[in-house]
Amino acid sequence: MTLRTAALVAGALGVLLLIAGLIADAQRPPADIEAEATLDTAVVVYSPEMVAFAGDNTLGVDGEGDVVALTARPVDADAWLAERDATEVTGLPEWETLSTAPYEVAEPEPTASPSVSPSASPSPEPSPSVSPSGEEAEPVDILALTSSDHWREQWSGVDRVAVPAAQVPPGETLVVVSRDGSPLAATDMTLSREVNDGWITPLIWWGVALTVVGLIALILRFIDTRPWQARAEKWRVGRHGATDDVDPGSRRALRASGDPLPDVTLDHPADNPPATPASPPSTPENPHDQGGRA
């Protein structure tokens, strides 16, 4: 394989690397993302576990009108939510998706009583939950309908409320409601994630470099360089001709004449002590060095 062929192959590889790098750069995943979920209830719940999961990130809820976020003890939130339709954010199955489920009130702790009524089994018949009348209900303030004594912290906003999860006291449930009872639109959680994309930029530069090499080889393929080569050959021959004279007595002259090269000992002869820092520099004994490359 000639140098030119190798350069062309490198150029082709460079083009591939460059394309791959540019595609990767265009599709580079963002480090800061927003996981979302759509909602269809007026109330959304983040359990203490989900609030802890959110850590230092922000929880947001979009709706129409006043949107209010409140915290409460889990048992109080359960009691308040018991008779309301609510959606619970249950997890983060994918980076950009929040999973949700209808909120279910936590079952009370089982008692030690051995007697359990068999009638406690749930009815298999679904109960109708949607009014067939189709009439629009009067907007009400669902927070004002009941006591607000159990709410501990509160944030509010118009069309959206965002709550830093770190500001929710540990162990408390976060409940977000649309004050007028209209369904909330969506909830989101801003997240920061680690993206290992440090290889993309070097890949692009390597691709550029190899492509340039290949491009040069390709250009040279279509240019007649023989005059330049002949001129270079002539210059090289001329330069060699000027330097063919061999210094008599040099190692090169000895090799050319077939004479053996002199042995060189590293030991100092007794009558020639090693130089000390105070003594003048010793004269090299090697006659070939004396011949020098002056």
Binding site: P29, E49, F53, L92, E94, W95, P170, G171, V195, D197
Partner: peptide, 17 residues
């Protein structure tokens, strides 16, 4: 392959202060 996995869920609620 260059995005970290989704963090594991928190399964135990922190204690109420």
């Amino acid at each position: 392959g260059c995005v970290a996995d989704v963090p594991a869920p928190v399964t135990e609620a922190p204690a109420l202060e």
